Simulated scan of single mutants.
Amino acid sequence: MDQMKVAYEAMLSLAAEMVWDEALRKHRSEQIYSEIDSALAKGDEVAFRLLTDELKTLEH
């Protein structure tokens, strides 16, 4: 019984970590989109390219 409890707790921990990682990834993606909009508005091509590269990396 204790072995099952340990396995269950490990699975819960892993599931929580996956949810947390996804929330962080989503939040960062939203930040990047906002920064991309600002870079486009300013005509900052360097920032735009860096941000789109980061976004591509984040989404893979």
Rank of each mutant, 00 (worst) to 15 (best):
E30Q: 08
A23Q: 09
R28E: 04
L58Q: 09
E59Y: 06
E35W: 02
A10D: 05
A10E: 12
L50M: 13
T52P: 00
I32S: 08
K26W: 02
R25I: 03
D37W: 06
L12E: 09
L50Q: 12
M1P: 02
D21R: 15
R28V: 03
A10S: 04
S13R: 13
E22I: 07
I32T: 03
K42I: 02
L12R: 13
L55E: 00
L14W: 14
M18F: 14
A16Q: 14
D44T: 09
L51P: 00
E59T: 01
D2L: 12
A15R: 15
A10C: 03
A39N: 06
L40S: 05
I32D: 07
M1R: 04
A23K: 10
K26R: 14
K56N: 12
A16K: 10
T52A: 03
A41R: 09
G43A: 00
E30W: 05
Y8V: 01
I36L: 07
K5I: 11
T57D: 15
D37C: 02
V46Q: 11
E17C: 07
S34E: 11
S13H: 13
I36Y: 04
S13C: 08
R28N: 07
L12K: 14
L50P: 00
R25N: 09
H60T: 09
E30K: 11
I36R: 01
S38M: 11
K5P: 01
V19I: 13
D2V: 09
T57H: 12
D2K: 08
L12C: 10
K26P: 04
A7S: 00
Y8M: 12
T57E: 15
S29V: 01
G43S: 03
D21T: 15
L55T: 00
D53F: 03
I32F: 06
T52V: 09
M18S: 13
Q3V: 10
H60D: 12
K5Y: 06
E9L: 14
H60L: 13
E45I: 09
Y33K: 12
S13I: 13
V46L: 13
D21E: 15
W20V: 12
D2Y: 10
L50C: 08
Q31R: 15
E9S: 04
F48H: 07
A41N: 07
T57N: 14
L55G: 00
D53Q: 14
